[in-house]
Nucleic acid binder design. Structure first.
Length: 476
RNA sequence: CGGGACGUGGCGCAGUCUGGUAGCGCACUCGGCUGGGGGCCGAGUGGUCGCCGGUUCAAAUCCGGCCGUCCCGACCA
């Protein structure tokens, strides 16, 4: 329940230190013994479970089923798709010994499951009647990362990976975009995180994909986070893994595939987007505790206040709110206020002798700090209403921040200045060449986060050649 | 992987230069008083100093190797 009384570093003073302290102080995660491994603690995991449920419902609503595939992937499978293995090779962890015997073929711990899943799909798909195949997997993956950070980049992480197979290229593309929208809806509606959607440049494309689409979010420190991706794999994997089917014309043809993923990284996004100097700030839809009752008592009225708090707790719980009553007698109200703000609980309900006398309670919003006095019998309705208001306001606040930190650059000088001094998203035309993309990266550390769906003509700031809109930023 | 800093009870740190057998604050336990923004007093529990090896009568302290963490850079679906 309690944690060391340490002052949380100010968010803009040292964002990195702030982030790491918050992760630990709010009991979201804890370091493991192997580099880049972390335990997700119950409070953090409960947030993940709610995100997971929201997304999973959306997958089911769009016709997908869940399944589970093996953790270990034979080396030969990974090698079948050339670009794929090249992309992942540097980050693989290998199993070379089983029991006490050296294995004939070493086995990779999955960094992603395209290759092993394709091997199954090869047998599962024979006819056009077997398509589309719409499967999702919730699992862990392992990538031997050099620089890790809780949630944002961990060696092992939890995610979902969707793997679908379609008869036509059009269908596969439609699926890719549909899932991109599913992600966007989850970010906006459940997480109150506004995201930009668009296409990756070829250099940022998933290894083996024909086209990669992305959801990009802007963090509070002005850096971008790739929050989810959806890939159109074309026939690349089908050809590599020999997945074929007989179509209506009795021709044996290769199908078209997609894959799409979303990971525990988004918890890091949640912290960075909404968190402030007081700590975490959770959107009501994801908060393990939506409102916490803090009783204010004195020695002589402790019993009465406690009884009132317990009654109120039951009432609000029955009204459908995820409640907590902090009846701990060790800590002062002030201590509890700080603690629950650190944990990001959306609303605090203060109940003291004066409130009981007046038949009211004090509500304090975590997102704005606003205080309101509400009559006891109106509390359930008001609190439920507040949850919606806070959920929406958090999205609005984050969207306003993104708006303020999205800038057009008219010249390369201006571009460099914005990235160096203000960060955020910079919108500028790009000539489509890897050379200019690379130069910008070398000069400014900014990369193309995405190519929007609607792009305007203009002149590339570096080359002066004709180009179209791209969104740049420094990324996590 | 390169440059830098660091690793001492759960957390933050002192002690390391000048070897002599571990200390402070917070947390935790017990008792009492308190309680509308991180309360107070008293009494306690807990570590052999990241790991391995070396030097020495003696190592948290000196030397070597390894592991890990943080920052910067490279890499990163």
């Amino acid at each position: 329940m309690t944690e060391a009384v340490e002052k949380l570093t100010k968010k803009n003073e040292d964002p990195s230190k702030w982030y790491l302290q918050l992760v630990r102080m709010a009991k979201l995660a804890d370091y493991g013994p192997v580099r880049g491994t972390f335990a997700i603690r119950p409070y953090g995991f409960e947030i993940w479970e709610r995100i997971q449920r929201d997304l999973d419902d959306r997958f089911k609503a769009t016709g997908h089923k869940n399944a589970y595939f093996p953790l270990l992937i034979p080396e030969s499978y990974l090698k079948k798709e050339a670009e794929h293995v090249e992309g992942f090779d540097p980050e693989l962890a290998w199993v070379t010994i089983g029991g006490r015997e050296e294995l004939e073929e070493r086995l990779a711990i999955r960094p992603t499951s395209e290759s092993i899943i394709c091997d199954f799909y090869k047998n599962w798909i024979q006819s056009y009647r077997d398509l589309p195949l719409l499967i999702n997997q919730w699992c862990n993956v392992l990538r031997w990362e050099k620089v890790t950070r809780p949630f944002l980049r961990t060696s092992e992480f939890l995610w979902q990976e969707g793997h679908t197979v379609h008869a036509t290229a059009e269908e596969a593309r439609a699926e890719t975009l549909q899932m991109l929208n599913v992600y966007q809806d989850c970010f906006h509606e459940a997480m109150s995180i506004p995201v930009l959607t668009g296409m990756k440049s070829p250099s940022e494309r998933f290894a083996g994909a024909v086209e990669t689409f992305t959801c990009e979010a802007l963090m509070g420190d002005g850096r971008a986070l790739q929050a989810a991706t959806s890939h159109d794999l074309g026939q690349n994997f089908a050809k590599a893994f020999d997945i074929t089917f007989l179509d209506e014309n009795q021709d044996r043809v290769y199908p078209y595939q997609t894959s799409w993923g979303f990971s525990t990284r988004v918890i890091g996004g949640l912290i960075l987007v909404h968190g402030d100097d007081r700590g975490l700030k959770l959107p009501p839809k994801l908060a393990p505790t939506q409102a916490v009752i803090v009783p204010i008592w004195r020695g002589n009225n402790k019993g009465e206040v406690r009884r009132e708090a317990e009654t109120l707790f039951d009432e609000l719980k029955d009204a459908g709110l995820r409640m907590e009553a902090d009846l701990d007698e060790e800590h002062s109200p002030g201590w509890k206020f700080n603690e629950h703000e650190l944990r990001g609980v959306p609303v605090r309900v203060e109940l003291g002798p004066k409130d009981i006398e007046k038949g009211q309670a004090v509500l304090v919003r975590r997102d704005t700090g606003e205080k309101e006095f509400v009559a006891r019998k109106e509390l359930p309705a008001r609190l439920n209403e507040l949850m919606g208001e806070i959920q929406e306001n958090m999205l609005r606040q984050a969207a306003a921040f993104r708006h303020e930190n999205t800038r057009q650059a008219e010249s390369y000088g201006e571009f460099k200045e914005i990235i160096a001094e203000k960060r955020g998203f910079v919108v500028a035309p790009w000539d489509g060449t890897e050379e200019t993309e690379q130069k910008i990266k070398e000069d400014t550390k900014a990369t193309i986060r995405l190519l929007p769906f609607e792009r305007q003509e203009g002149k590339d700031l570096v080359s002066g050649k004709p180009g179209k809109t791209a969104v740049f930023a420094r990324a996590y």
